Computed example of a mutant assay.
Amino acid sequence: MEKNEKLIRYSMQLAMLNQLLSSELISQKEYQLVKNRLMKDYRIFSDITV
Rank of each mutant, 00 (worst) to 15 (best):
Q28S: 12
Q13A: 11
D41A: 15
Q28Y: 07
M39D: 06
Y42S: 06
R9V: 13
S46D: 13
E5C: 10
E30K: 05
L20W: 07
N4H: 12
I26W: 05
E24N: 13
D41Q: 14
A15E: 08
M1I: 02
T49M: 13
L21Y: 03
E30G: 07
Q19H: 14
M1D: 03
K29A: 12
E30P: 01
E2M: 09
K29M: 08
K35G: 00
N36S: 15
D47E: 08
V34L: 13
I48D: 12
E2V: 07
S23M: 04
M1S: 02
Y31A: 04
Q13L: 15
S23G: 02
N18K: 12
E30S: 06
R9F: 09
S23P: 00
N18F: 03
E30F: 09
Y31Q: 01
V50C: 08
S11G: 05
L25V: 01
I48N: 08
S23Y: 05
N36Q: 15
T49D: 12
E5Q: 09
I48S: 10
R37N: 14
E5V: 14
E5A: 11
L20N: 03
Y42M: 02
N36G: 14
T49E: 14
S27R: 00
Y10N: 05
S27E: 00
M16F: 15
I26G: 02
L25C: 03
I44K: 00
D41H: 13
K35E: 07
E2L: 13
V50H: 08
M39I: 02
L7K: 06
E24F: 07
A15M: 04
S46L: 15
I26H: 05
V50N: 12
L14Q: 08
D47N: 08
S23L: 06
L25M: 06
S11A: 06
E5L: 09
L21G: 04
N4F: 12
Q32T: 15
Q13H: 10
I48C: 03
L7F: 05
M1T: 03
Y10M: 00
I8N: 10
V50P: 04
N36P: 10
Q19D: 14
K40D: 07
V50T: 10
S46C: 13
E2P: 10
L38V: 01
L14V: 13
K40F: 04
Y10D: 04
I8V: 15
E2R: 13
Y42R: 01
F45H: 10
K6S: 05
M12P: 00
N18R: 09
L14G: 00
N4M: 14
M1H: 03
V50Y: 09
L25Q: 06
I26Y: 02
R43F: 10
K35W: 05
E24P: 02
I8A: 15
E30Y: 07
E24V: 03
I8R: 15
K6H: 07
Y31S: 01
I26D: 01
Q13N: 14
Q28D: 08
R9T: 11
M12K: 11
L14K: 13
N4P: 07
M12E: 15
D47K: 03
M12C: 09
Q28C: 04
M12S: 09
E2H: 11
R37A: 14
Q28F: 03
K3G: 02
M39V: 02
S23K: 04
S11R: 04
Q28G: 04
N4I: 14
E5T: 11
K6G: 03
